[in-house]
Write a protein that binds this DNA or RNA. Structure first.
Length: 331
DNA sequence: TGGATTTGACCCTT
DNA sequence: AAGGGTCAAATCCA
């Protein structure tokens, strides 16, 4: 199957794309030269110099964009630079690819299988694809971060060379709302405990129950941030009272159930997580592309260092830094 | 009793 | 062929 997220497999097409980009960069360079000339003239006249500076800034950005694109294309595109992989447009393409791969799975029971058992009568050939190019967000965390969505575990696998099994979750609303979001959770380190959560797909479900109980951070609402805030007047109080956790009190039982029998160790750490009072929780990207936030806790931001992996995934590694106020990362 | 979890099997990608 | 992602029957649980 042709993957919409693949790079031009036709070498000549790719070469043409590079040629076009080179041409564009050359033109931008010429434009910069003209602007430089204008700038020096304007400096003599001391007249409207700011406008030229802005123009030059724009040209520099254009040049940078061309240069990045060229370098990505020449490197083959797969493990490109962060400049490329944070690109919302490409991310959206990858998401579409994911959705295409996931459609119509239930309709595959055509019954024309040659297999005899009741299970084998369900011919699942071609009914799903490994999500090779899906956009995903990887989060490494010392504890399990509840992202506010209702997940249902649908599988667990022992992974080769991995000490701990990988657990597979899909959105609870996959069937009733067609939400295609999934996530994988795997413990990757014993001491200190470290869990890797890989979010794939995007939530298209309307989680009305939870939405009504959560308060979207108004400071970020214009950016369609996935940031969910639990800020309230007894913020400090909740920090001092581990028994009061907004997640535990607000989420329906399905959320709490999610990790209940996950793994004894994992649950232990999850409980540790749940007993921490964090005002913000990291959510997977929404329909508008990659948007990550750091979590804010008692004036300490559990910030995340971002890096990029193959296939356009985003790595988020927890670290802690002190900030005076909320810090939101969007990209 | 309905929804969630477990787990073996199936199937795709590499 | 191996590894990994998903399905779905069996089982569990509130």
């Amino acid at each position: 199957m042709e993957s919409p997220c693949s790079w031009p497999e036709n070498i000549s097409d790719r070469t043409k794309a590079i040629e076009e980009l080179v041409k564009g960069r050359e033109l931008a360079l010429q434009l910069r030269g003209i602007l430089n000339k204008l700038s020096s003239e304007n400096n003599n006249n001391d007249d409207d110099g700011d406008g030229v500076v802005l123009d030059q800034d724009l040209v520099l950005k254009i040049l940078s964009s061309f240069t990045n694109s060229l370098s990505i294309l020449k490197n083959g595109g797969g493990g490109g630079s962060g400049e490329y992989q944070s690109d919302h447009e490409v991310s959206q393409i990858q998401t579409n690819a994911t959705h295409l791969n996931w459609d119509g799975r239930k309709s595959e029971d055509s019954g024309d299988s040659s297999k005899t058992s009741s299970i084998l009568n369900k011919d699942r050939r071609g009914c799903y694809k490994r999500r090779k190019c899906s956009d995903s967000v990887i989060k490494d965390s010392p504890n399990l971060v509840d992202d506010g969505h209702a997940w249902r575990k649908y599988g667990q696998k022992d992974i080769q060379n991995a000490k701990y099994p990988r657990n597979y979750f899909r959105c609870t609303h996959k069937h009733d709302q067609g939400c295609l979001a999934t996530k994988q959770v795997q413990r990757i380190q014993e001491d200190p405990p470290l869990y890797r959560t890989t979010y794939s797909g995007r939530h298209t479900c309307k989680n009305l129950l939870k939405a009504s109980q959560l308060f979207i951070d108004s400071r970020d609402i214009h950016h369609n941030s996935p940031m969910i805030s639990f800020c309230d007047d007894d913020h400090n109080q909740s920090n001092n009272n581990n028994n009061h956790n907004p997640f535990l009190s607000s989420f329906p039982s399905s959320i709490k159930q999610e990790y209940k029998d996950f793994d004894h160790d994992i649950m232990t750490h999850n409980n540790n997580y749940q007993s921490e009072s964090s005002d913000h929780y990291i959510l997977p990207p929404d329909d508008h592309g990659h948007q990550l936030t750091s979590t804010y806790d008692s004036g300490v931001v559990n910030s995340s260092s971002l890096s990029y992996t193959d296939m356009g995934t985003v790595m988020v590694e927890d670290s802690v830094a002190n900030f005076d106020d909320d810090v939101l990362f969007h990209f």
